[in-house]
Design a protein around this nucleic acid. Structure first.
Lengths: 192, 192
DNA sequence: TTTTAAATGTGATGTAGGTCACATGCCCTT
DNA sequence: AAGGGCATGTGACCTACATCACATTTAAAA
């Protein structure tokens, strides 16, 4: 499917735009291709864009002082990714965005998002709902982190996103779940 | 300060409304008073409203199968609280909302929020930004949960919201931090 | 003012998961 | 085809935090 079609279908799930309106919106997105392992956002840099994933898989992650990695999000087709904190508050990135596989994305600048939100009420609505969903998902994950042990968080993740199992290496899954790779490795032995 | 003034000042920090527009918005809010310990949202019930806190302190929390409590949010003056997941998805509440102290709130129904968002573009903008902030805060807390130990999460919380120290009992602070009350009690002995 | 319940402190003990160390296997590059 | 670096498995040991138990203090209610 064409980039235009992917985005159009995605937006149409939440809000209603005429073809002319959508074409206008689409004109603000920049198509980009990245190779596996490539970096899109680097901690410390200025962040100007958010990214709509067309194909491939990204990870957004934080590296702490001990160089330990924590994954905030895996982003696959039709997911949005960025350092939203830095983006909204015009501050330097504290998280990174990398490609787990080759990836195609549509890039939208912060200024252009605000512009089209201001010009098209339905797009303001769209972005409100996108963030709503992100917020609710984040709260759920927080609860899961407090309530559940590593095993059930692992099962919950694979249940929710089975496709990750084949694409994402286990050490990254561990970094998402908030456990060491060794512990994760021991979970799926002997039906423990 | 009057309820009207509190909400007006709060909204004016994010978006611009004429006095007439604000009065129209305000007419959709219902003023309510609650006593300490009173329940506002009960898990299992239908959720119709979100609550803007004028005074006092609320907690939103989840109770797991072992009857253990996990606090998602403390809400004080100018904070918003509800079971947003249930509210947006029109499903039954999975979290509860209770009063830690006597509290005054403004109640806004889901339908009225959508109505005023549809009618007033600046209010759509306001709610987009409110959720943005919530989303970013939730991501930060998730990272802190994964990265930091109980001691530093405790310090981080008191640093961010010093007023909680005097209002909220320690067992509830523990339920927010995701540690047992015993562990929390042991943290602030002997400068450990 | 008395009674009852909630909040807090503290010891003893258990455990999930972390860390370190090293071996093996797999894929990507030249 | 060979080499180098990730990714993964697994043992040994350690630690932060949980749980249980009971004492004590504080606050609310009758």
């Amino acid at each position: 499917m064409e980039a235009l079609e992917v985005l159009k279908t995605h937006i149409a799930k939440t809000t209603i735009l005429t073809d002319e309106q959508f074409d206008y919106v689409f004109a603000h997105f920049k198509h980009q291709s990245f190779k596996k392992g490539q970096n899109i956002i680097t901690a410390g840099d200025q962040v100007n864009c958010e990214y709509f994933v067309l194909s491939g898989c990204l990870k957004s992650f934080y590296i702490n002082d001990d160089l330990k990695m924590f994954i905030l999000q895996f982003a696959m087709s039709t997911w949005w990714a960025s350092d939203f904190n830095a983006l909204y508050s015009h501050s330097k990135a504290t998280i990174n965005l990398d490609c787990i596989t080759d990836a195609e994305v549509l890039c939208l600048s912060n200024d252009d998002r605000e512009k089209i939100c201001g010009e098209l009420h339905p797009m303001e609505y769209f972005f409100r709902w996108r963030t709503n969903k992100g917020y609710v998902a984040s709260q759920k994950r927080l609860l899961s982190m407090m309530n559940n042990d590593a095993k059930s968080r692992y099962e919950e993740l694979l249940n929710l996103y089975p496709e990750l199992y084949n694409i994402v290496p286990k050490n990254l899954i561990a970094a998402y779940l908030g456990v060491s790779r060794e512990t994760l490795s021991r979970l799926y032995q002997s039906g423990k």
